[in-house]
Design a protein around this nucleic acid. Structure first.
Lengths: 270, 270
DNA sequence: GCAATAGTGTCTTTTAGACATTATGTG
DNA sequence: CACATAATGTCTAAAAGACACTATTGC
């Protein structure tokens, strides 16, 4: 039957409505390393992994906190939608962005059949100087603390006035099958998405150069080491760390001065 | 405004048609290791990485070869859709399946706005004894050969009567932006998807236990080493290989006999 | 000078690379 | 018994782990 008509005719007669279609949203897990400045002029600040969340101003999950995101339009890819949302939230462009996973459990959104193509974005402290975008009325940075044993992620999120917490038994092969054991304040299935993003970052840190996206263009080796320590939740040996990253960095002639200790050399990514 | 109505009212009045929606398909890159038996009773067969492709019986891309797949239904996840398609194609269940990437370039399908949530499935030679499913009329195994230098993948696919080939400059951070430099016989953007699947398998082989999905439940260490060699496109040192995988295997009391050489012990995954 | 961090040296332990050697079933 | 593969031993080289030590700065 089909062979009797031309491809042109076929395409003109194609009826997209023969199949039910989902809405597709692009959601973004935006991580950065925030620095809590020290009161002691000698000491360095303490760093912490942080995430940008937006307060929901409408139903469903009114008043809870969600990942930034929005619906994908017909003239863009899911990645372009995420880039657009990122710009609207943070006013930033040229940010590291990678696709994470497409969450598609039929009832994950009470409104309708809505899939979430989730993304991971990493900002460095240079980026944070920039003010937030138009859509960011209720966007806030939360510092994260977590523990993870046998894929049981216990995560807490804190800002000046709020603390959220969640416990997720992550299924690393099939993140949608993860069990949300406890969850206070995170909307939708976003606890699963955040846990999976954290898992991804922890893993990729070890076999890729992801960490450079979380430090400024010029950075000290201690800053870079802090990124690893804060994400991996462990302290590393300085000498071993420097040996390991040596192939990926290049020293500059500049130094970071102004603290009560020996100035540190600034490096750039090779 | 929204605060004046209840969540129940909001959900009842939610109009999904306010936004345009794409169709979403689940496509599957199904890899296995095929064994070409040797004519010499002493010698072992030569293994090769292979992929299952289906010949398109309708427009668009009539007569070309495509990944198995189909549209996602409203009561299933993209993963469940992939599992269902896999069953229809191969008649197999409980197969290793992981989500690969969601391809969503607006014009990637000439019919309409159709995203592809692509998946990776791995079969072992036990699985291959099973006959193919109903939908598999034109499904065929192609053995693959490839080279890769600086993410330039040159891949050829061969079966008894056909050879396809493609050259893809893979963008590993953003696979949709990969350049298809040459492509004979693969439909849609499936060349990009296959190249990305191959990249994923090559990488994951090194830091995960993916390889065990490509050997039978009981396997010889040479079989397992062959999986690595065929996928990584390089020969490995036997002693070093065995040291490295020792923590992940457990020996059985059984041996594989019947060849003109010393029998090899059978192992299982730990 | 002291507190705090920067940067390096070095010893030990572990892991990986490269062969070489011994073992064994089947025609 | 010869062929082809199985399995292991061993020497060397490289990488990782664990500390200790020296170098600088601002107050």
């Amino acid at each position: 039957m089909q062979k009797k008509i031309s491809e042109k005719e076929f395409l003109e007669n194609y009826r997209v409505n023969d199949y039910e279609r989902p809405s597709v949203a692009a959601d973004i897990v935006i991580f950065t390393i925030l620095d809590k400045e020290s009161d002691n002029y000698r000491k360095l600040g303490t760093k912490s992994l942080s995430i940008l969340l937006v307060r929901r101003g409408g139903y469903p999950f009114l008043g809870e906190w969600a990942l930034p995101g929005g619906f994908v339009k017909p003239d863009e890819t899911v990645g372009q939608a995420a880039t657009r949302e990122l710009k609207e939230e943070t006013n930033l462009e040229n940010i590291y962005l990678e696709q994470l996973y497409t969450f598609s459990t039929p009832n994950r959104d009470p409104r309708a059949w809505i899939m979430s193509s989730s993304h991971l974005a990493l900002l460095n402290s240079d980026n944070l100087q920039v003010q937030s975008g138009d859509d960011a009325a209720d966007a806030q940075w939360f510092t994260m603390e977590y523990s993870c044993e046998e894929n049981l992620y216990k995560i807490s999120f804190s800002n000046a006035d709020t603390t959220l917490s969640t416990v997720v038994k992550l299924d690393i092969f099939n993140p949608e099958e993860s069990q949300v054991i406890e969850n206070t304040g995170l909307a939708f299935d976003h606890a699963k998405i955040v846990a999976y993003a954290l898992e991804r970052v922890r893993n990729k840190l070890e076999y890729s150069q992801l960490a450079f996206n979380l430090v400024p263009e010029k950075f000290t080796l201690t800053e870079l080491q802090n990124v690893y320590e804060v994400i991996l939740n462990e302290t590393l040996f300085k000498a071993a760390f420097r040996r390991k990253i040596a192939p990926y960095i290049e020293e500059t002639a500049e130094y970071q001065e102004g603290f009560g200790h020996r100035p540190s050399k600034l490096f750039v990514r090779r």
